[in-house]
């Protein structure tokens, strides 16, 4: 179902999006620098930083990948890294789905390809525009271009200055992951229904982290917590009906 009334791809929309996303891109850059510093610590080369930031372009997945990364190629857990990326990025299914009303007939493939440039930040700006009756795929792409440039420059910069920071734990930089994830988590709070899945996820993750080596606790906790949330929601749904 395309929307014939959706706005065309114009340079105007592109540059409006590119400009509108500069403020959010600055905060993206701030944690891009942190990611770059940690990437150095995890053993990523400058080329690998450029490839991962430039191609994968997904902040939270890249943070999780660093957690799993090993400096020696032979021990690199390729499967778990890809699987973790998949799990962490599943939420993009929901974000890109909300862009559907902006797709003009005949631009489906182009629009789907453009979703590569969708990040949390330019998505949020575009949804804000849609609420005002504006917004377009070109606006999203313009914003994505800004965010991409800031992310690229910041992560490379972080990787370069990372050489000057020998031990991140000395400066508390290892805690940047935890603090960032915690803040992202709190930003997702929508009400009491979130409490149960989060607690189940936290408990299962803590127990798994103690019992299973490696980073599988992210998956066990994530799966247990999300199922707990879905089951609780379903039971509440039935209670409402009866």
């Amino acid at each position: 179902m395309q929307n014939p009334a959706a706005p065309a791809w114009t340079a105007d929309h592109f540059f409006a999006g590119a400009r509108a996303c500069i403020p959010v891109a600055i905060s993206v850059a701030a944690y891009g620098v942190v990611w770059g510093v940690l990437a150095k610590q995890a053993g990523l080369s400058l080329l690998e930083v450029m490839l991962m930031s430039g191609l994968v372009f997904a902040g939270s997945a890249q943070f999780v990948a660093l957690d799993l990364w090993t400096a020696t190629p032979s021990t690199l857990p390729i499967g778990p890294i890809i699987l973790a990326t998949l799990i962490v990025n599943l939420r993009y299914l929901l974000l890109t789905a909300t862009m559907r009303p902006l797709v003009r007939p005949g631009t489906e493939k182009r629009s789907a390809a453009a979703m590569w440039l969708l990040s949390d930040e330019n998505w949020a700006m575009t949804v804000g525009e849609m609420a005002k009756g504006r917004g377009s795929i070109a606006f999203l792409v313009g914003g994505g271009t800004t965010v991409w440039c800031f992310w690229m420059v910041a992560t490379v910069f972080g990787r370069l200055i990372g050489s000057a920071i020998d031990d991140p734990t000395k400066y508390g930089l290892d805690f940047a992951f935890t603090a960032t994830f915690l803040a992202l988590l709190l930003g997702m709070w929508k009400g009491k229904a979130d409490l149960l899945p989060w607690l189940v996820a936290a408990l299962v993750a803590i127990i798994s982290a103690k019992l299973i080596p490696g980073s599988w606790y992210i998956l066990t906790g994530g799966i247990a917590g999300s199922f707990a949330g879905a089951i609780a929601e379903r039971r509440r749904g039935y209670a409402h009906q009866s």
């Binding site: 993750a205 906790g221 999300s226 707990a228 949330g229 929601e233």
Partner: peptide
């Protein structure tokens, strides 16, 4: 169920990342 499950994944994954570290 599937929609509810998808909705709860991001929060559950983040909670799993944070809790053991803390």
């Amino acid at each position: 169920f599937i929609a509810a499950w998808l909705r709860h994944i991001p929060g559950a994954v983040l909670a799993s990342l944070v809790a053991p570290a803390v």
